[in-house]
Design a protein around this nucleic acid. Structure first.
Lengths: 118, 118
DNA sequence: TCTTAATATTCCTCTACAGGAATATTCCTG
DNA sequence: CAGGAATATTCCTGTAGAGGAATATTAAGA
């Protein structure tokens, strides 16, 4: 899914991930994020902008402050994406043997054909 | 966690994500990946290299072929990371109100003090 | 209305990194 | 051991995007 990719790439930036992790514990105004993460205000605003465009974050103005809070939807999507792997984790995924055996067989057939051809 | 970040950034590349999704259904030799995803062989090898370094993928040589299979561990880690959000999803996270109310209250106190001062 | 606090935006620069093309490596087969 | 198949590596180039610094915007209070 397209939006999963977007979520991934947005989270793949260290400071952005930090912001998300900070917001995990509740909403915060920009200033607090700046202080806690020891980043420069413009960069934080930019990161929040990116997070916002990706729907990972939501803004509520209170006077001059902008309170940012996490939006769970994209993370839920990521979760769903991961689900599809969970089912495979303890199944065929670990059976490399199957593939190798299949390969062996195919090879046998191949050789058979080659010999047939001659 | 550091490795979560790494997993995220490695997956945040479209073609790499495609490769992972392809390998979800079972191991494949490089050539098959090339054909199925319509990518150039060198790029696929490079992506596999990156995936490999991040532990997302594992290689088994069979003659000149290199069979790549998914390693679930990094995805499991990602899953664990997500878990910590799941618990919050339907709880305080959606209670922006709390924060706003708290803010209101603080503001009231502030004003009170200010008026007191006069 | 002027000032100040909080935040956003713009412009610039620098670097990481993905793709292209060519070449190297590895391993089987005759 | 020469040749070819499968894959890896190297070198080059172009570009997205992150940070720095300065400036713009918005809202409140005196």
């Amino acid at each position: 899914m397209k939006s999963t990719l977007r979520t991934l790439s947005v989270l793949a930036e260290p400071n952005r991930l930090h912001i998300v992790e900070l917001l995990r514990d509740g909403p915060r105004p920009v200033g607090e994020i700046v202080n806690i993460l020891r980043l420069r205000q413009p960069q934080v605003s930019k990161h929040l902008h990116v997070l916002s465009k990706a729907g990972l974050v939501e803004m509520h103005p209170v006077a001059q402050q902008r309170i940012y809070k996490l939006r769970p939807e994209p993370l839920k999507e990521l979760n769903i994406w991961l689900e599809s792997y969970r089912s495979t984790w303890n199944k065929r995924l670990d059976r490399l043997d199957d593939y190798l055996i299949k390969l062996q067989e195919d090879e046998m057939k191949q050789r058979g054909k080659k010999y047939e051809r001659k």
